[in-house]
Design a binder for these strands. Structure first.
Lengths: 303, 303
DNA sequence: GTTCCGCATGAATCGATAG
DNA sequence: ACTATCGATTCATGCGGAA
């Protein structure tokens, strides 16, 4: 079967021990931030954050395929007028653990949380840290191309014959441009600053990100049928989006109520079981299949 | 006298030793990044970057007023598929030195350096790290309020970005004045993601950052008559903008040719000496005074 | 005096090739 | 194996001159 979602309740560091190595294509997650969400997760003290996270990321490193990618959405809290350093300490610790720190995307939130303080403005961005297991990872850049900027309207309208023919290597840096390359181009590659609005506050999970966010990374780093993992599932945005996009997915959360809620949402999704269709057919028809796994504390997971 | 600029040639770590403590209101600087600008500055190896920087920042910490702010523009390089860690190591080292890491602004550059690679997109942002000496620093938030987004979109849509900027840059052109009148109506506080395009003229004139960048921080953290320091002056954007904005400024650079070039530009600025006018009058009339200091290797600086 | 078009250029990075 | 050099790739913007 092609599409499949598993929801597992428990501590991801423990649950992942039962997983086979080198099986996950993409990890997208937003772990609880330090000292936040005290009433739900209990809160992790900033000074202990790295020690809390590293045993879990050890398992993540093991289960990730060598061609896979780990996207970590995390934000440091400002405490007593200062930005805490646990996030950058975590980056150093993860590198020491064997991860490659490949990239740092910026999630720019246009509609950031309102507020006013005498010593700072609204915090409108978060880190999206990309880690990899090896330098040869899968990346499908064409899948996330975006419309070319406004500048093209005014500038590429009427090109003379000389421009179409021109391919010049100018002085020094070698960046000659060939205008004709742009003629039939309406899309360009994105950069590492992502503009996504935050989700409205109608869900009760405090750290949810918008669907566009996991969608963008799932498009970029996986193909249909690949396996996506969110070890801190929360409200389940990652697994629900993966499901819609016809990827297999596994969500883990330590709170049973979140697991129940996500399972309920999955059951409510439009779905049909399918048999022998190609990925293309499945995507085209927007059919989804759901394989609801039994809900176990310690599954003998053989994905 | 109110306005004053000093250009000093030499290593800022040495030159600053002659400065009195607690005298500078704002430091805005963009030091040479690791392994960049090799042909001009020689390049600092990433692994030695922190050791190179820390002695200099020790003096910066000393000369800064307790109410002052240090803005550090820096970016890590990507090499062999990985982001280098020298910037985040520098943050940790600066904190250990006694700095407070107050904020991290993001400078988003739409027109970042072009290129395409199989494993990453173009890097379109840089860090603008804010450090402070104490938790009670001066911040004039109203000075950087910006127009409400909707209004600007609707009213200015028909004009090209180039035309808007060009007309605003000319002091007192009718168009610019009209716009600024309109803008005074609905303003909102900005957030910590700053959108500035990089400068890319078709002349040989290259600058590290656009004038808007130091201008924004000078407005936010200083008042007219305050002292602005750029210990890695380069092409001199910071001191030239400070000069226009009627702040005192000191620029330091290890390369004599940069010092000469900046002094020449200062001499070419429109200026009049003024006597007993208020800051407000000075700003309103767009008069500037220039006090060109003698150019010494080791000044007995008594600012 | 405006608008439009052409040209130049930028804190880059990777992979292959050569020493 | 490890380092140095070279070639290929790319998108947004300012400026100058022409229409």
């Amino acid at each position: 079967m092609n599409n499949q979602v598993k929801i597992l309740n428990g501590d991801c560091g423990e649950i992942l021990r039962d997983f086979k190595s080198n099986t996950v294509d993409l990890i997208v997650t937003s772990p609880p931030y330090a000292d936040r969400r005290k009433n739900t997760y209990g809160g992790i003290h900033p000074n202990k954050y790295v020690d809390w996270f590293i045993p879990k990321s050890k398992e993540l490193l093991r289960v990730l395929k060598p061609t896979g990618t780990f996207i970590l959405n995390i934000k440091e809290k400002a405490e007593n007028g200062e930005r805490h350093t646990y996030v950058i300490e975590l980056i150093l610790a993860l590198r020491k653990q064997g991860w490659l720190w490949t990239e740092e995307f910026i999630w720019y939130k246009k509609n950031s949380y309102p507020g006013k303080w005498p010593n700072r403005f609204r915090d409108s961005w978060e880190r999206l840290l990309q880690f990899n297991k090896s330098r040869k990872f899968n990346m499908y850049q064409e899948e996330v191309m975006k419309p070319v900027g406004d500048w093209a309207n005014g500038r590429l309208k009427n090109l003379s014959e000389t421009d179409k023919r021109r391919d010049n290597a100018k002085n020094g840096s070698g960046f000659g441009k060939n205008i004709s390359n742009w003629l039939n181009r309406d899309k360009v590659y994105p950069n590492n600053v992502l503009h996504f609005a935050t989700v409205c506050y109608n869900k009760d999970h405090s750290a949810a990100f918008p669907e566009e966010l996991p969608e963008w990374f799932i498009k970029l780093f996986t193909k249909p049928g690949d396996l996506v993992l969110d070890p801190f599932m929360g409200s389940g945005t990652t697994v629900l989006v993966a499901q819609k996009m016809n990827r297999k997915s596994i969500g883990i959360d330590i709170l049973k109520e979140y697991c129940d809620k996500v399972l309920k949402q999955i059951d409510e999704m439009p779905h049909t079981l399918f048999k022998d269709k190609t990925d293309h057919e499945i995507q085209t028809e927007h059919n989804y299949t759901i394989r609801r796994e039994e809900y176990r504390k310690f599954p003998s997971a053989t994905i």
